[in-house]
Amino acid sequence: MKKYRRPVQIVILLLVVILGGYAIGSAVLGSHDRLQVGDKAPSFSLLGIDGRVHHLKEYEGKAMVINFWGSWCKPCVKEMPALQQQAEKWKDKGVVVLGINAGEDEMTVQNFAEDRGVTFPILLDPNSDAVRDYNISPLPTTFFVSAKGNITSIHQGELDLNTLDSQIGQLVAP
């Protein structure tokens, strides 16, 4: 028995450190309910208006701009051209612009995208799954996500071309 004493002590203390560290760590890191800069972008799988299911996973390794919008929301409509322009500009540098529509149906969204000449992927979120996971309250809200999948900036409200350009610039810069 005696010779097992030391290993038993070490195992128990290690367990305390691991379990306790996990509990304290998750209390420190996971205590906030809302998404913050530095958090991992929550995953989603949503149907796009192109008829394909888009997963966050498939964009791994690419810098992303995720824009939550609705056709009834005026600032969202206003910033669409800027987003479209930036999507085209940064496409070759590996930046993906995604639009997630908050709760409207396919027809409304499709018509909207056609009318405004939006060509970047637009995803439908009929059950507000992504809206919930991303804690969206006002529209539009735009998330800038690094190639590593971390949120580097959250912008609530309308984005103008210049802000958008500089934000994406920072995202791509090493």
């Binding site: 305390v16 306790g20 509990a23 304290i24 209390a27 420190v28 205590s31």
Partner: peptide
Amino acid sequence: NSWWFILLLVM
């Protein structure tokens, strides 16, 4: 849910 309270519980 604060770190110190959890720490006390762990201890």
